[in-house]
Design a protein around this nucleic acid. Structure first.
Lengths: 343, 343
DNA sequence: TATTTTCGTGCAAACGATTGCATTAGTGTG
DNA sequence: CACACTAATGCAATCGTTTGCACGAAAATA
């Protein structure tokens, strides 16, 4: 049987309410009593029942995580481990714990979120993806429930709080970087077109080309659902053009691995015959052959900041306003682009 | 304000207890009433308050996840995403959701587990690592709380339920495989020695050498804390021996990446001058250059099976006995060992 | 028809905390 | 010494469910 607050009360010769106030460290309880009660809690090995507490309290000290549906293998991307690490760190610092639902289909994920919110299982929610026209975000908004999106939400971005990288800028920067290295034929390989992140990065890429007075060719922009082909098709398509590119911007390290692997198979050397630059700077970037030049976007920080915003939102009972946090990024130069690094 | 069971009861003209029984789909309620109540729930958008339910119920429909402390960067290994995917899938199928605590230090992790268990926040726990002399496992065992370990726990492995790969066998098999390909000088590069998995794999490696009448040389066995050096030191040490090996068994794909990257830097070609075989068959194995020959250990399955065992344990109220599940593995041959694949 | 079963439902007591209000004891003031 | 006031604690209602038991009506049995 569990040790309850009543047992502690009896042991310390006080009323349950007093014990409760000791737990909350209320100034209305004398120091002496506090110590006696604390001793009793210690002796009996008392731990408050979280459910009773939540019920009385109307608060859960838990944060819900919404992951993309397990169907999309997106989850395998180490991005998620890292962002969760960030979330978890901040959450832990503030005494929150984490609660996850996943589902196989989108519908299941949605149902999970609804019952998490309506069932009052969590105090707030972090949404770990951003898709066009997302039911989950819409639901959270209508419920006026505290939530934060990691990545840029499509609709109503002015109304929802989100934490993101400036992907547009990053896309522009890496493209210019390649141009500075002397490349004139620069291609872009991205993931699914309906992800905000892809659109932003390709947008930056195009802008950079225009600013540098290079032609923007549709043939040079390919998108590939990563997990199925690893970008092999994309590479083959690019290399079969009359003027194949000499450099390529890849929108994710994982995909860059696939691209380099395909290039390797085709006997095309990186960086000598093809420069590759990508995003996220996952730790695999460091250990690939050759090591990848990649944009460090501080994934941990994204998670951490998101949680920070969420906790703020939970604490102020003001209506959530659309706050926007941009986490800075920077290019980490390794060997996949040649250039200064490899004289 | 939340819609409660009373509101539904009023709407449907029944008592709250009847509504509760409808939710539980009790056979004691007539079909007609059930429908009326369900309609009312629908109309009002009723969702049961999970805390009230857990309180009355003494059950939470949640499973706790214990991760290694965030300090060790182990978390970055995609292994975890994948095992969680497995856990989450099975959990979801049975109506359980997931609950995570992490902590920076081991002590924090331990405290997290204690309050999760004592606070009755979860019905059972999956432990995602196995270390020598672990407080967490000891605590769970003493509390007689349902739990399962993924990987082999050191102490008392007969008493605790765990799900694991036969790492000993796998280590033996890959070593023999390399020998079959003609290698006589085979080295082993592993992670931290106090992880069960390393010990098992190296054990299998040694046995295989002995069975094949090859010498077991201590110089050929190196272990390296992965995340710091990526196994670079290990490789350098091996290559500076008077008789450097011609093949190496690496105890993890991530580390194998690091090893191959270092070999690449040193101008040693894989697989022509050095064969590399590793374990886990993470999806990056497929996209590395050259693609890695690796042992598929079905990480998803480990998580799935573990959860399966846990749920069994939760449901039978018998004292948890030490059940042991071994998930089968098999070698996936790609190009990092040369051989049949590359004529 | 009287009596027992069965069936469907309601009553009220848990579950283990929190919290507004009442109560008591102790202190200072006129 | 009576009174007001403060400080410390207790009482009891509340949070939203579940569930053992009681109860009345209908069906089955004698």
């Amino acid at each position: 049987m569990q040790v309850t607050i009543k047992d502690v009360a009896r042991e310390a010769n006080v009323a349950p309410s007093t014990v409760s106030r000791v737990i909350a460290n209320s100034p209305r309880i004398s120091q002496k009593t506090k110590e006696r009660v604390r001793q009793a809690m210690e002796d009996l090995g008392y731990y408050p029942n979280v459910h009773a507490r939540s019920l009385a309290n109307r608060t859960t000290q838990a944060i819900g995580l919404v992951m993309p549906s397990a169907a999309t293998k997106t989850l395998q991307n180490p991005f998620f481990s890292e962002v969760i690490r960030g979330i978890s760190t901040k959450a832990h610092q503030n005494g929150y714990s984490l609660y996850m639902t996943t589902g196989v289909s989108e519908e299941e994920v949605y149902e999970g979120v609804v019952s998490m919110v309506q069932g009052r299982r969590v105090d707030g929610v972090v949404v770990l993806y951003s898709r066009t026209d997302d039911k989950v975000v819409q639901f959270l908004q209508e419920s006026k429930f505290p939530f934060v999106v990691v990545g840029k939400p499509f609709s109503d971005s002015t109304q929802v709080t989100y934490v993101d990288t400036d992907n547009y800028l990053a896309g522009r920067e890496v493209t210019k970087y390649l141009h500075q290295l002397g490349h004139e034929c620069i291609a872009f390989v991205g993931g699914s077109q309906d992800l905000a992140v892809t659109q932003e990065r390709v947008g930056g890429y195009k802008t950079a080309l225009m600013e540098e007075r290079l032609p923007v060719e549709d043939n040079y922009i390919v998108s590939a659902p990563f997990m199925t082909t690893g970008g092999a098709d994309a590479v083959k398509r690019l290399m079969s053009l009359k003027h194949p590119p000499t450099a390529v911007v890849v929108s994710d390290d994982m995909m860059a691995l696939g691209v380099m692997s395909t290039l390797n198979e085709m006997g095309i050397s990186v960086p000598d015959e093809m420069a590759v630059v990508s995003f996220n700077n996952l730790f695999i970037a460091e250990f690939s052959s050759p090591p990848l030049t990649s944009v460090e976007i501080n994934i941990f920080g994204l998670g951490f900041e998101a949680t920070n915003c969420l906790i703020e939102q939970i604490n102020e009972d003001a209506t959530p306003y659309g706050k926007r946090v941009i986490v800075p990024h920077h290019l980490v130069v390794r060997q996949s682009c040649g250039g200064p690094q490899k004289p």
